[in-house]
Amino acid sequence: MLGSIFSGGFIALLFAATIARADYPISSICIEAQTGLIVSEHNADLRRPPASMVKMMPLLLVAEGMRDGKWTLDTPVTITRNVETVGGARVYVSAGEVWPLSHLMAALAVVSANDAAIAVAEALWGSEDALVGRMNGRARELGMIDTEFHSVHGLSPGNGGKPDQSTARDMAILAQWCVLHPIIREWTSLQNHQLRPDGADRRNTNRLLWRMNGCDGLKTGFTGAAGYCVTATAERGGIRLIAVVMGCKERSGRFERAQELLEEGFTNVRRFRVLSKGDAVAPAVRVTNCETAQVTPVLASDLWVTVRIRDLEHLRVVSDQPAAIKAPVIAGTPLGKVEVCLGQKTLAATRLLAPMDLAPASWRWKLKESVLRWRGKAPQPAARSISTAST
Rank of each mutant, 00 (worst) to 15 (best):
Q191P: 03
H181C: 11
D201P: 00
Q165K: 01
R207G: 01
L218C: 05
Q176K: 14
W210N: 12
Q194L: 04
A225H: 05
R196I: 02
A168W: 00
T223R: 02
I173A: 04
A200L: 11
D164K: 12
N204H: 10
C178Y: 07
L209G: 07
R236H: 13
G238R: 09
R169N: 04
G158E: 15
A225T: 08
L208R: 03
W187H: 08
D170Y: 08
A172Y: 08
M212E: 10
L218E: 02
G158P: 00
L218Y: 06
P182K: 15
Q176Y: 08
Y228R: 15
G237A: 07
T220N: 14
A172L: 05
G237Q: 15
D170H: 12
S156P: 13
K162W: 00
R203G: 01
W177H: 15
T205V: 00
T233H: 08
I183C: 14
D201I: 06
T188R: 06
A225K: 07
L190H: 11
S166A: 13
G238E: 10
V230N: 08
C229T: 13
I183E: 14
N206T: 11
G238K: 08
M212G: 00
G227R: 11
D216E: 07
G214I: 02
R207F: 01
Q165A: 10
T220W: 03
R169A: 14
I183T: 13
W210Q: 09
A225E: 13
L155K: 00
T231Q: 01
A175Y: 14
P157C: 08
G217E: 09
T205Y: 00
H181F: 13
N159E: 13
L208F: 06
V179C: 07
H181A: 12
D198M: 05
V179M: 03
C229A: 05
D164L: 06
A168F: 06
F222I: 12
N192L: 01
W177L: 03
D170F: 14
T205G: 12
V230K: 04
I184T: 05
L218V: 11
R185S: 09
R202W: 01
W177A: 10
A225F: 07
F222A: 13
C178R: 01
I184C: 06
R169M: 07
P197I: 07
S166W: 06
N213F: 02
W210L: 11
G221C: 03
E186A: 07
G221W: 02
W187Y: 14
N192K: 14
E235M: 08
P157A: 03
G160N: 04
V179S: 03
T205P: 00
G227I: 03
T188N: 06
G214R: 10
G160S: 05
G214D: 04
Q191A: 04
A232P: 01
A175D: 06
K219M: 15
A232C: 09
T231G: 01
E186S: 13
R203N: 05
A200N: 13
L174W: 10
R207K: 15
L155E: 01
T231H: 00
V179A: 03
